[in-house]
Design a protein around this nucleic acid. Structure first.
Length: 543
RNA sequence: GCGCCCGUAGCUCAACUGGAUAGAGCAACUGCCUUCUAAGCAGUAGGUUACAGGUUCGAGUCCUGUCGGGCGUACCA
């Protein structure tokens, strides 16, 4: 429809003003129903170049417009010079039929067809269970990956981790101390250790498997390796519970072993972008607008995380993805520009790295902000949260707000919300439809072909129009990396359905109308199921 | 100090990236179930979009400044 409108508008413009360079024709959906189904502001944007009043241009344009009555019912001028289009009913019915034919594919597009996307997310080092603090990252990353799949891309999900750094050494040591304590040694956990109960569990597992074989080897690699293995198993189980499945777990250590780190250092050096000072190796980030240069390799010989970050991203691009998406919390906001600068001087197109920075989640417990720390074991795990409210509510909660805004997560409220939780509003709409369908199957014999033109009620027409918007909202949510847009849209679908349900009956109506309404219901079910599917949320048969 | 993000109804947040009368959900109040799920529908009330300027046909949205909050600003990850 949009293409059709653009075509007739530009045809008319060309006829009226042959010398004019055609402007981009912007179509938008008016907020208010009285303003029609679609509107354009071309008359206003042309006011300046044509040196004419917007309304005058609009009148000329509408006069020259040639359109098919099967597509458009009316074209009107309103306000300061908007041109409002109202779709013909026959077009709506055809479009609804088309949507039903696509079924579970309705909403898919080919926008990114042929593109390979990679989404890297979660990427928490395996030092402890995933907490609600990781939740927003995990759910955003996975849902954005799903959105890209729906827009036609081939998508891979990757988890990046580092098992060689200081964090993991401390982790191994924490396990070793607990291990020795369990075997009767009187000793204290050093300052800065991981204090969580799960460390004790890992240590206990080691006493069961190995007895006291390692009691005099607290630095043995087995402590760290066991911890890593156990914790990673736990993490991936948590992710699976949330409907998240990674394609790849990428270990930073591989970058050292395959020479990617050295290669980056060499290439930066060749470009003259690094220098030594005070025993450290610096990257001249001041050349890219930073206030200070950045250390890549510490005087201890250990690299900072920026160096492997650059190498990692270069490696990802080398693997052939068209676009690599990073899901970062706000604390990374200052670091990724260095990575982009590094990639650019290495000859990569930084546009192939797409970063989503989301604002932090404020955990609220008992009415007060709650500061979490994995190290101090001061946290609520995602598993605990899902035990309370389930994975649907958990996913929904993290998705319902714009990534760019701070999200307040009131644990007590999430636990309590139960029945009045907003996710149930959507699921209830679907369950209601399924319930009607089950009843209708008993009463309505062979439905035959529905005559959709019987759908004349205001609530019916409004519902059809909203359903037809679904594909463009999928695209909008995907391109902006803002899944909450889809949630807002599904809310409108559910609201329109509930209103229809209230206004229009099916059972007991004239069979022709009943069949038409059942067809409409199927359309709603398709959109709700597809939409919830993108969000990774269950569409229940019953509630 | 400097950089990035945020500031919208009592609370939590939308507003499709510059459009027409700023909208939902909680919380408050009023109606609607002998008929397909009341986890619903309809309605009332609630606003100087933090503040002050600017840009233009038009600003919650863009630019400048002020105030308030978050995060950075490490040879920490």
């Amino acid at each position: 429809m949009n293409d059709y409108l653009k075509k007739i508008i530009s045809d008319a413009l060309q006829k009226l003003y042959p010398d004019l360079e055609l402007p981009e024709i912007i179509l938008e959906k008016p907020r208010i129903a009285e303003h029609g189904d679609m509107a354009t502001n071309v008359a206003m944007t042309l006011a300046k170049p044509l040196r004419k009043a917007p309304r005058g241009i609009a009148e000329e344009l509408v006069g020259a417009l040639e359109y098919d009555a099967g597509q458009l019912e009316s074209v009107e001028i309103a306000g300061p010079g908007f041109i409002n289009f109202r779709f013909a009913a026959s077009w709506l019915y055809d479009a609804l039929n088309g949507a039903l034919q696509q079924g579970s594919g309705f909403g898919k597009s080919t926008l990114l067809k042929g593109k390979r996307y990679q989404v890297e997310f979660v990427s928490a080092n395996p030092t402890g269970p995933l907490t609600v603090g990781h939740g927003r990252n995990a759910v955003l990353g996975d849902t954005i990956a799903r959105l890209y799949e729906w827009t036609g891309a081939a998508v891979e999900r990757e988890y990046y981790f580092n098992n060689a750094g200081r964090q993991m050494r401390v982790l191994g040591n924490s396990v070793a101390v607990r291990y020795q304590q369990l075997l009767g040694r009187d000793m204290e956990l050093p300052e800065g250790s991981y204090e969580g109960e799960y460390i004790v569990d890992i240590a206990r597992q080691m006493t069961e498997e190995h007895g006291d074989a390692y009691i005099d080897q607290p630095d043995h690699i087995l402590f760290k390796e066991t911890a890593e293995k156990v914790i990673f198993a736990d993490i991936s189980k948590t992710l699976e519970r949330m409907n998240i499945r990674m394609d790849t777990y990428f270990n930073e250590n591989d970058l050292y072993e395959n020479g990617a780190i050295d290669s980056v250092l060499q290439r930066l050096d060749q470009k003259g972008l690094t220098y030594k000072q005070d025993g450290a190796l610096w990257f001249k980030t001041t050349l890219f607008g930073k206030e200070k240069d950045t250390v890549l390799v510490k005087s201890s010989g250990e690299p900072t995380y920026r160096l492997p970050d650059i190498a990692y991203h270069a490696h990802k691009l080398d693997r052939g993805y068209d676009v690599c998406v990073d899901i970062f919390g706000a604390d990374h906001i200052a670091t990724y520009p260095d990575v982009l600068s590094g990639l650019e001087v290495l000859g990569y197109d930084p546009k192939r790295i797409d970063v989503l920075v989301y604002q932090f989640v404020t955990i609220v417990m008992e009415g007060k902000p709650f500061k979490m720390s994995t190290r101090k074991a001061n946290f609520v795990t995602l598993d605990e949260l899902m035990d309370e409210v389930g994975s649907d509510v958990t996913r929904f909660f993290f998705l319902m707000r714009s990534p760019g805004t701070h999200l307040e997560f009131d644990i007590a409220q999430a636990k309590e919300s139960g029945e009045k939780n907003p996710v149930f509003y959507l699921q209830y709409a679907y369950a209601r439809i399924r319930s009607i369908m089950r009843k209708v199957e008993e009463t309505l014999e062979d439905a035959g072909k529905a005559d959709l033109s019987l759908l004349q009620h205001e609530s019916e027409v409004a519902l059809i129009k909203i359903l037809l918007d679904f594909p463009e909202w999928v695209v909008s949510a995907a391109m902006s990396k803002e899944p909450h847009r889809l949630i807002n849209y599904l809310n409108e679908v559910a609201a329109a359905f509930h209103k229809f349900y209230h206004d229009c009956r099916i059972i007991g109506e004239d069979p022709g109308l009943a069949v038409a309404r059942v067809t409409l219901l199927k359309g709603v079910a398709v959109v709700m199921a597809n939409g919830l599917g993108i969000l990774g949320i269950d569409a229940p048969e019953k509630m």
